[in-house]
């Protein structure tokens, strides 16, 4: 290594740092130790470097930069906090609870009262009037209509009821569950404007609590109606009429 090569290397030498561990610089330093002229150049070079370094290190950050970085970070964190998926999920859950709260807090009928309410509502429907969606004595289009509208259509009629005069059907609703309402005639004289006097309500049995169990009809009075209730194949049947119980039994 000659002096020029050593000078070139020693330009990037900083005393007191790990620079001296660089083998080339170590060799150049050794040469400077044995070459007085190179040693003087190195001393001068070191002094100049110190002056330049001091100028670089006079650079100071403006007052307030640190506080500004931290405050902006806090603001961003708060924003991000609200955008976290877990927070959004929790907020959505809280909202759902708030919306659902009135539903859950509403007075619930006691266990077993569900069926009683259902009976009363169906009786009121039959007595106060209703509109038939399909008016026909043909059972085929009635089943098709009910099936098409996702109401119970795979019902089984007692053999005697199949002989009753069919008048039509309607789809009703019980707490979100569809009910198939089939309208028949007993053959007795109908009151003015009436199209039927015998009604069969079919509903999925899981939609009702407290309904009588079993396939054998159980008779009851609902308001001015006589009714029979039974279960079959997962469905609850309610057959009601304005006639008396013996008349009703003729259709079961």
């Amino acid at each position: 290594m000659n002096r020029d090569e050593a000078e070139k290397l020693l330009r990037r030498y900083r005393p007191g740092t790990s620079d001296a561990e660089d083998p080339q610089i170590a060799e150049a330093l050794a040469l400077a130790g044995s070459d007085p002229e190179l040693g003087r150049w190195l001393a001068k070079q070191g002094a100049q470097q110190d002056r330049v370094r001091q100028q670089f290190r006079k650079i100071t950050a403006p007052a307030g930069l640190r506080a500004q970085i931290i405050s902006e970070h806090r603001a961003r964190r708060n924003l991000i906090f609200w955008r976290r998926p877990s927070i959004l999920l929790a907020a959505a859950a809280a909202l759902a609870v708030l919306i659902g709260l009135p539903f859950w807090l509403r007075p619930h009928p006691p266990e077993g009262a569900g069926f009683a309410v259902y009976q009363r509502q169906m009786a009121a429907l039959a007595l106060r009037g209703y509109g038939m969606d399909v008016i026909t004595n043909d059972p085929v289009p009635i089943r098709a209509y009910l099936a098409q509208n996702q109401a119970p259509a795979d019902y089984r009629l007692p053999a005697a009821l199949q002989q009753a005069g069919l008048a039509g059907c309607a789809i009703e609703n019980w707490q979100g569950t569809k009910i198939s309402m089939l309208c028949f005639r007993t053959g007795r004289p109908l009151s003015n404007g009436a199209l039927s006097d015998l009604w069969l309500f079919v509903i999925d049995e899981t939609a009702l609590r407290g309904a009588p169990a079993g396939p054998s009809p159980q008779f009851t009075k609902i308001s001015r109606l006589t009714a029979a209730v039974w279960r079959q194949d997962g469905k609850l049947y309610l057959l009601a009429t304005t006639a008396d119980e013996p008349t009703l039994r003729r259709f079961l």
């Binding site: 670089f56 290190r57 650079i59 100071t60 950050a61 403006p62 930069l65 640190r66 500004q68 970085i69 931290i70 902006e72 970070h73």
Partner: peptide, 28 residues
Amino acid sequence: LVAEYYEPLYQFAFSLTREEAGACDLVQ
């Protein structure tokens, strides 16, 4: 972390930009 490094980072940024606002932006 900010307390420890914002000053040397600013020195580096300012030496590159020679402009205070630009250096502050880079550090931030």
